[in-house]
Design a protein around this nucleic acid. Structure first.
Lengths: 354, 354
DNA sequence: CTGTTAGCGCCTTCAC
DNA sequence: GTGAAGGCGCTAACAG
């Protein structure tokens, strides 16, 4: 049916092995021979059979990228960076393809996809997004990652802390964000502006990202002697706009005198803003609002969001290089990306509250 | 090294063929046998070798998704829908994996990726985003799609018009957006508000999406007897924020009395808004601004963007089903998704201009 | 530098 | 309903 290596070999008057060598460029071949082979490839419009070569070589050109939801720019930006790094124009290495898997934040799907990637003999895997904090799941994850490693695929965590790691194996490499530090700075910024009653709309409980950001927030509060109310002024939700809306409404009913609301991320912050606007609360005159991540839309929101910038693309790039073994594993296995406070119009001096 | 079909077969006391049948569920196997096999699979933690089965079966579980840039929510939303449709929870069919390819809008990369997908023996391909209007490229594209088809992979265009199509082969299926109609409505809305001097910041020239939106705009203008100025008041750029910014500046210098600016899409519109804001031009009191696509951030921009909603997720879903052959090819091969005007705060009655 | 020889692990007729 | 056997197209030693 379709043209094979053997066809090319016949046409070029060489053996299949030689054609393979030319195509993979990992073995010396005489210039003239190489040219003849390449011409035959052209003429026959030969296209390598990926599965066949993956079978024989026991590795494929696929790189798995697990994300919560690729429609969310947070993940889109990371995935885009990964794909750029592994894609065309890369150094000598073969073009790799990114297999994007939406887990929807579900731990089971995370495991399922890891197995599916193992089945494909993926060359590497980048596992993004905050992790569920659950012993059992972590263990299951470690097992899957171990299987992948056994098959030669490095797994790199991106945006999640390193796994506990068994005693024998070295835990997978991780690229993390300084969520704690960023959150600390952010709340510090509000405190400096004179805010004393701060609400917090967090992400889903039992997620590393959620916890770290909340910890940073609490740390800043504690430093200012405001730890007492923290618990009462915290609500949890999902990382979406609706959660921000609901969270703001709830916080306002719990504490009508709030002068600031810290949101789990930019998207949640938009929901918070929407709720406030609907109630005629001015931002930031009455209530200041902050986001997290500094996604592209944050600068264009109404008002422009004060937030914390995370170098998402950079992290994706690093994770990809690490996963492919292009860069050496850092000591300790963890690379931490800095978080930067970005003050904008959504925060201002503490006023009287709504 | 790793456990194979044969190992499972041995453990279950059956032949490899039987195990294969159980795993693929496409052949009758006695209940007891099936259970024994499944147990052996569990016990051995057997994971199918994807490349091997792809080689033998001459088809893989991969579905290609070509996008301009997965970091752009426009594409992220479509890709997410595709991935959801082909992913877990699907009907009986095997879990498929999405291979996301960033073309960056480059025609060469588009071709390269198509070939790479052919090499992987992809089961289907969804080609999103506006197309370059160029005979030669269209022909090359048609050829590649033909090769893919020969290998059993349907290609579905999503968000781009059907390819010319050779005489012999039927052209690939397409899911398109009513860009022309949407643009017509949008400009009609501005005209109704009394605007007469409208600027247009378009996307890259020679792209179908760009042209269709511009045509809709011009059609509305012509209907109102305003075709004369259209050419002079149009600038082209990329589909990004910076282009919107530059475009607005340029338009304003060409025609200081503009009362409305129509942007190629929401992202460009944000750039336009930023430029206007910086110059102290009020939106919409002085100048109205419109976007296109209705991406999630449009509602939260400052001010909320009047735009045209495109059912992106729906389109992605449909394209995926068509590509996998889950749904029948519609008559004519083209499914058109409607575009809906979404009036928000960024447009208002025509004032005196800036 | 190039050809020969074995598989890689699975699917799929074909028999039974 | 199940087993046996051949081959999918390529790579990787091993010779030469």
């Amino acid at each position: 049916m379709s043209v094979t290596l053997a066809d090319v070999a016949a046409r070029a008057g060489v053996s299949a092995a030689t054609v393979s060598r030319v195509l993979n460029g990992n073995y010396p071949v005489a210039g003239a021979t190489r040219r003849r082979v390449l011409r035959a490839v052209e003429e026959l419009e030969y296209v390598v059979n990926g599965p066949a070569s993956a079978l024989a070589a026991a590795t494929s050109d696929l790189v798995g990228v697990l994300v919560n939801d690729i429609a969310d720019p947070f993940f889109g930006i990371i995935a885009s960076a990964v794909q750029t790094e592994i894609g065309p124009g890369g150094d000598g290495t073969r073009q790799k393809l990114a297999v994007v898997c939406n887990t929807g934040g579900s731990p089971e799907r995370e495991l399922t996809y890891l197995t599916l990637l193992q089945r494909q003999r993926a060359a590497a895997v980048v596992l993004t997004g905050g992790a569920l904090e659950d012993e059992e799941h972590s263990a299951a994850l470690a097992t899957r990652i171990g299987h992948l490693a056994a098959a030669g695929a490095h797994t790199v965590l991106c945006g999640r802390p390193p796994l506990p790691g068994s005693v024998t194996d070295e835990p997978p490499t991780a690229v993390t964000f300084d969520n704690r530090g960023g959150a600390r700075q952010l709340t510090g910024h509000l405190l400096e502006l004179g805010h004393r009653r701060l609400g917090y709309v967090g992400g889903p409980a039992a997620r590393t990202t959620t916890r770290h950001r909340l910890e940073g927030h609490r740390a800043a509060l504690a430093e200012a002697g405001l730890a007492g109310d923290a618990e009462r002024l915290t609500v949890h939700g999902r990382y979406d706009r609706a959660s921000g809306y609901e969270g703001a409404v709830q916080l306002l009913s719990r504490e009508p005198d709030l002068t600031a609301i810290v949101a789990a991320n930019d998207t949640v912050a938009l929901g918070v803003c929407a709720a406030l606007r609907e109630r005629g609360v001015r931002i930031p005159e009455d209530v200041s609002v902050t986001g997290f991540d500094d996604l592209p839309f944050a600068a264009d929101a109404a008002p422009a969001l004060t937030t914390v910038r995370l170098p998402l693309a950079e992290a994706g790039r690093i994770a990809a290089r690490l996963a492919l073994g292009r860069d050496a594993r850092p000591a300790g296995g963890v690379t931490t990306c800095p978080a930067t406070l970005v003050p904008r119009a959504s925060t201002g001096p503490a006023g009287a509250g709504p």
